[in-house]
């Protein structure tokens, strides 16, 4: 890590000083022998960015070279991903691939993005997946998805807030409308924070959100968790039923993982996969991620590649139905 961090860390005598030391360069041509760039295709501050920094710190410790997080936001996370797709496949440039850049945007920005989410990358490891949860304002009278469906069919319709147009939450709203048989009134916000505030204030009765950003508000009781869009109930919220249990066949996790440009040596991919999984299975990391509402990933490199392939195929028809286009 950098001089600054080392200096500040030493100043306070932190235990972190150990990993903040500038690591000695490894001898010979063996990978890794120089700092690794980890591109986060979002602006700083989001869940992905946060976890990326955790992972970077972990990998740095295990690999013995510094892992530097670099934010390259823009265009549904495609700007940063494109940069990595074109970088040299030497194992020194990685990207936080995610549901936007490698799941949904390939369909939304079809013809505009100059990378293929599947073939232009060597996918390394799934880092975290987060279930989607539907929450409602406590005074809205909505307790179950049945209530929501009834309200949607009534004259007024049902407003559902999301963190933005073209997000996985937006597509969930579209899909749910198809299942109920009437269109839901989608209210996009600029980020999950403002959307959650509108739900708490009662301006919008319902919201589709990822569990990490909603977990805190559910625990505080400022919103009610109506349904979890995952295959099984979430261990941290065992009392919240899934969509399937309530008769709606809908399950979707948002996720992010590590990927490198296609052509990265298999040995490097294997090593990164091993170190990432080892890092993620450490108990205190698991605890931190569970607090966030996320599940640490435990897929092989091939497994993650296959996972990305399935996601791209899954979202394409929903994107079409939602009408989200870049034009």
């Amino acid at each position: 890590m950098s001089w600054t961090l080392r200096r500040r860390a030493l100043l306070a005598g932190l235990p972190l000083a150990a990993i903040a030391e500038r690591p000695a360069l490894a001898q010979g041509g063996a990978w890794p022998s120089q700092p690794i760039r980890l591109v986060v295709p979002f602006a700083p501050g989001g869940t992905t960015d946060l976890v990326a920094r955790l992972v970077a710190a972990g990998l740095q410790e295990r690999l013995g070279v510094s892992v530097v997080v670099e934010n390259r936001a823009g265009a549904g996370a495609t700007v940063g991903s494109e940069m990595v797709a074109r970088a040299a496949p030497d194992g020194y440039t990685l990207v936080m691939s995610n549901i936007a850049s490698h799941g949904i945007s390939p369909s939304v920005y079809r013809g505009r993005i100059r990378y293929d989410a599947v073939t232009d990358f060597a996918h390394i490891a799934l880092v975290v997946s987060n279930p989607t949860v539907w929450v409602a304002n406590p005074r809205s009278g909505i307790r179950t998805l049945g209530d929501a469906a009834a309200k949607a069919r009534s004259a007024g319709g049902l407003d559902v807030a999301t963190s933005g147009a073209g997000s996985s939450n937006h597509l969930m709203v579209v899909r749910m409308g198809q299942l109920i048989g009437t269109e839901l009134n989608h209210i996009p916000f600029r980020g999950a924070g403002p959307a959650m505030q509108a739900v708490i204030a009662g301006q919008v009765p319902m919201m589709s959100d990822s569990l990490p950003s909603a977990a805190n508000h559910i625990r505080q009781g400022s919103v009610i968790a109506v349904a979890m869009a995952s295959a099984e109930r979430h261990p941290s919220f065992p009392e919240v039923p899934t969509f399937r249990e309530q008769g709606f066949d809908l399950a979707s996790d948002s996720w992010f993982g590590l990927s490198a440009p296609a052509g990265t040596p298999a040995a490097v991919v294997e090593r990164l996969n091993r170190e990432t999984r080892a890092f993620l299975s450490a108990p205190e990391i698991r605890a931190r991620l569970a607090e966030l509402g996320g599940t640490p990933g435990d897929l092989s490199a091939e497994g993650y590649g296959e996972f990305v392939r399935r996601e791209v195929a899954l979202w394409a028809p929903l994107v079409q139905a939602s009408g989200a286009t870049p034009d």
Partner: peptide, 16 residues
Amino acid sequence: FIWYLDIRVPVWPQLS
């Protein structure tokens, strides 16, 4: 920028 704020910017010519 480099020592105090530690921003991410290439400082010297990139040889590779």
